[in-house]
Design a protein around this nucleic acid. Structure first.
Lengths: 135, 135
DNA sequence: TCCTAGTTTATAATTATTCTAAAGTAAATA
DNA sequence: TATTTACTTTAGAATAATTATAAACTAGGA
């Protein structure tokens, strides 16, 4: 993804392409594989990667802005920290409890044959499968 | 579940049946349906239900002791608070984001036809399905 | 009954996250 | 281009959930 596309991506979501947002967006979206992170891990990686300095609050703000714009997914993981995923296409996860690591599973790798009806007055928004791993 | 069984349950898990543990165990396990809670909600319910006074730390300690003994399940839910479930049999959940409510789904209600292999050197511990609900 | 290891308790500490309000900046307007 | 304005960033304070601490308490064995 080129810089020009980053600008487009931000503008089309109503986000001003500030220096901080562009830097973070480049870091998150200019990659081939999907990327899983917490705000803390992203912060550390940004510190290493760029000379630019970001307030922690800015990283929170930016990540949430990207999430609200649909550029990031928040992932259900038990625990204190919130995980995000640059893969916004519907998919599932392995979760390795030993390393606290998430691994994407393509939606087509899991086929569910039978599923219950949503309770009264509710609809199914989405189905997430978590495969917990052990050694 | 009778009081005698509560004592047995605690003793057989190596937990001394203290007043606090017995009270909390009675509250959690003497029910027909499974029960979902957070430490905060449990604390509030105990305040109403019993005249007994519990330190918040005791509720944390006790819930974790019960979890470690296998009498409670911790449930993967996104968000700040940790959810627990008195249903320790393998099963799945509806999660209602509007009300932050969990609803059990019997394991047999969901049939998975195809599932990927665990990554290198890892094994599958368990599979959890989350059905997120909307109105 | 006495002793001891395990438990409870109040409080402090920690951790992740959100809030605040002042200073900075993108971009619309004149 | 200069000015204005609304949006952003920032450092630090505030909040919320949870865990740690260390002193007081208690169950159960000697």
């Amino acid at each position: 993804m080129k810089k020009i596309d980053i600008f487009k991506k931000l503008r089309s979501s109503g986000l001003r392409p500030t220096k901080q947002r562009v830097e973070i967006a480049k870091f998150l979206f200019e990659r081939d594989k999907t990327f899983h992170f917490t705000v803390e891990s992203l912060n550390k990686l940004l510190e290493k990667k760029t000379t630019f300095k970001f307030a922690l609050a800015t990283i929170y703000n930016t990540v949430h802005a990207f999430k609200n714009a649909g550029h990031l997914n928040e992932v259900d993981v038990r625990g204190k920290k919130t995980y995000f995923d640059t893969n916004i296409i519907n998919h599932h996860h392995f979760y390795d409890n030993e390393t606290s690591e998430l691994i994407d599973i393509d939606a087509k790798e899991i086929v569910i044959q039978k599923i219950p009806k949503a309770p009264n007055g509710k609809k199914i928004k989405n189905v997430e499968v978590f495969i917990n791993l052990k050694n």
